[in-house]
Each structure stands twice: as structure tokens, then as C-alpha cells.
Design a binder for these strands. Structure first.
Length: 292
DNA sequence: CAGCCGTGGAG
DNA sequence: TCTCCAAGGCT
């Protein structure tokens, strides 16, 4: 089980000083951090986020910057479609919600790039709502401490009910959620959990003697040689250039498999990350858009 | 729902 | 070197 007193006591002294957790950070800026943290480690997000919120503090500022500038500022955080969706999200909030980030989960779920986790994270961390927040860290901690399993199973709607039942009934709920995430990120880690410093004295996994379980080895995605790598190379070229680049300039970015290169470029066009200019060159989408 | 979508640090 | 994986979302 997870004793809130133990967990919160630990969090109060062990929490990392992350900039988006500080007082005065706006809901939009918290939302930006959540977008960036989708599958990208804290250490890489930190410096980008600081520059980002100083440059574009509001949804409208982000929307007005244009998609190309946003994708460029995203740099190498990975999964550039997230940058594209963040820009789209900013546009919707600026135009439809008067530049105010919605505060309810249902509305947040309708926004581009916001799914089950991010909607709840914003409602909880930005608006202090008592809603369960379930990410990969939370699922792992619950699997171990509550169910005595070495790792979380595949995601299910049961997770939300599980975590909802653990939430304190009072205003401590948001801190409880961030504390569970922090424990999963720094102590109850996927690879080498540091059980020796874990504050939870009633962990079911430990009580059972750390059973190994019948782990179904989850296959890790390949990267080298995949379309994702090719897309990354092409985007590298486009990010580095402030003007449209020729087809030849893109061709040299990936020469081992021209067919694969063409497919990758096409997928970038389909994703709306890249566009072709009238003269046949290529640029980040929205590169030439005039500002209102 | 399984597969796809980037990147780089750690072990 | 190579494998793993890091606050997911979308189709």
C-alpha cells in the first residue's frame, strides 16, 4: 500500500526543484511542460522550457509565432509532431477559449495533442483538482507497492480507478499525485529501483520478496535505419535553414535508401510539418506565414 | 490495439 | 557496443 504520510513526507524533502513546479507558473506554461515531457526526459526539457516560456508566455504568443518557429524552437526534443500539436493547441485556446487554458478534463481532452494523461495533469497540477493522474511512473509504483508486481501491465481503464482510490480526500491530492510520479522517476525506477531509500514501508512487492513475475519481455523499438531516423535527418536540414531548401539539399541528408527518403519526406508533408513552396523547394510548414 | 512517431543519456 | 527507456498521443 501507499501511505500518504510517508510519501508526502518524503516528497517534501526529496523533490527536485523543477522550474514548472514553482509558484507563479501559469496553466499554459505547465501545459507546455507536459507536452515536452511526453516521452522526453526532464534533463533535456528543462533548458528548452525555460527559453520557451520566456519567449512565448501565453497561448496567443505561441500561436502568433507560427508553426515553423515553434518546430524550430522545439529543436531536438524528439517527436516533432508534438511541437506541431502544441502550436495547434495554442491556436485553439487563443481563438476559442480567449487565451485561457480550459480547466476541465473533458474540454482539455478535445484539444490537439492532449490525451488521457496530459488532460488530467493540467487539471491537477495547474488547477489543483482532485483527479487521478496516471502516467507510466504511477502505474509502475502502484503495480509494485499495491499489487506486489514487478512492473505495470498494459494500460487499462482500471488504472484510473486504482489511482483514484488512493488519492487523499482533501486538497493534498495534487501533491500526492506529483509525489507518486516523483517516486517513480527517482526511486521506484524501471531499471534499477533504489528500494534502499524508498519511503514506503508497506510496499507489497518488497513484502513478497521482490518476485520476478512472468515478465512478457516488451520489445524495444528500433531506431537506426527506420523512417523515424530519416525524418529526423530531413527535419535537421530544414530547421537549420531560414529559407526553403532544394530537393537536392534534402537528398544528401539520407543517401542509403532513396525510396525510404522519399517516403519519409512524404510523411512529413502529410503531417503538416513540411510544405513545398511554389518553386518546388521545401520548408518547415508555416515558414512564410505573415503575422496578423 | 499494435505500431508508429525522435533523441540521447545511462548502464 | 548495444540495449533500454524517458511526465504519451494518434490511427
Amino acid at each position: 500500500m501507499i501511505d500518504p504520510e510517508e510519501l508526502l513526507g518524503w516528497y517534501s524533502v526529496a523533490q527536485r526543484d523543477l522550474p514548472w513546479r514553482r509558484p507563479g507558473v501559469s496553466a499554459w506554461q505547465i501545459l507546455v511542460s507536459e507536452f515536452m515531457l511526453q516521452q522526453t526526459p526532464v534533463a533535456r526539457v528543462d533548458p528548452i522550457w525555460r527559453d520557451w516560456v520566456a519567449r512565448w508566455p501565453t497561448p496567443s504568443a505561441t500561436a502568433d509565432a507560427g508553426a515553423a518557429a515553434v518546430v524550430r524552437a522545439w529543436g531536438k526534443l524528439g517527436y516533432p509532431r508534438r511541437a506541431k500539436r502544441l502550436h495547434e493547441c495554442a491556436e485553439v485556446i487563443a481563438t476559442r477559449y480567449d487565451d485561457v487554458v480550459p480547466d476541465d478534463v473533458e474540454t482539455l481532452l478535445t484539444l490537439p495533442g492532449i490525451g488521457t494523461y496530459t488532460a488530467r495533469a493540467v487539471a491537477c497540477f495547474a488547477y489543483r483538482q482532485r483527479v487521478p493522474v496516471v502516467d507510466t511512473n504511477v502505474r509502475r509504483v502502484v503495480a509494485r507497492a499495491v499489487h506486489g508486481l514487478p512492473d505495470a501491465g498494459s494500460p487499462s481503464r482500471r488504472d484510473l480507478e486504482d489511482v483514484g482510490a488512493l488519492l487523499p480526500d482533501d486538497e493534498r491530492a495534487p501533491v500526492f499525485s506529483v509525489a507518486v510520479m516523483e517516486l517513480g522517476a527517482t526511486v521506484c525506477t524501471a531499471r534499477a529501483p533504489r528500494c534502499g531509500v524508498c519511503p514506503l514501508s508497506h510496499c507489497a512487492w518488497r513484502a513478497l520478496g521482490f518476485p520476478a513475475g512472468t515478465a512478457a519481455p516488451r520489445r524495444v523499438q528500433k531506431y537506426a535505419g527506420t523512417d523515424r531516423q530519416v525524418r529526423g535527418r530531413l527535419l535537421d536540414v530544414l530547421r537549420a535553414s531560414s529559407s526553403p531548401v532544394s530537393r537536392a539539399d534534402l537528398d544528401v541528408a539520407w543517401t542509403t535508401d532513396p525510396a525510404q527518403r522519399d517516403r519519409a519526406l512524404d510523411s512529413l508533408l502529410v503531417d503538416g510539418l513540411v510544405e513545398q513552396t511554389a518553386d518546388g523547394r521545401f520548408a518547415l510548414c508555416g515558414e512564410g506565414d505573415p503575422l496578423p
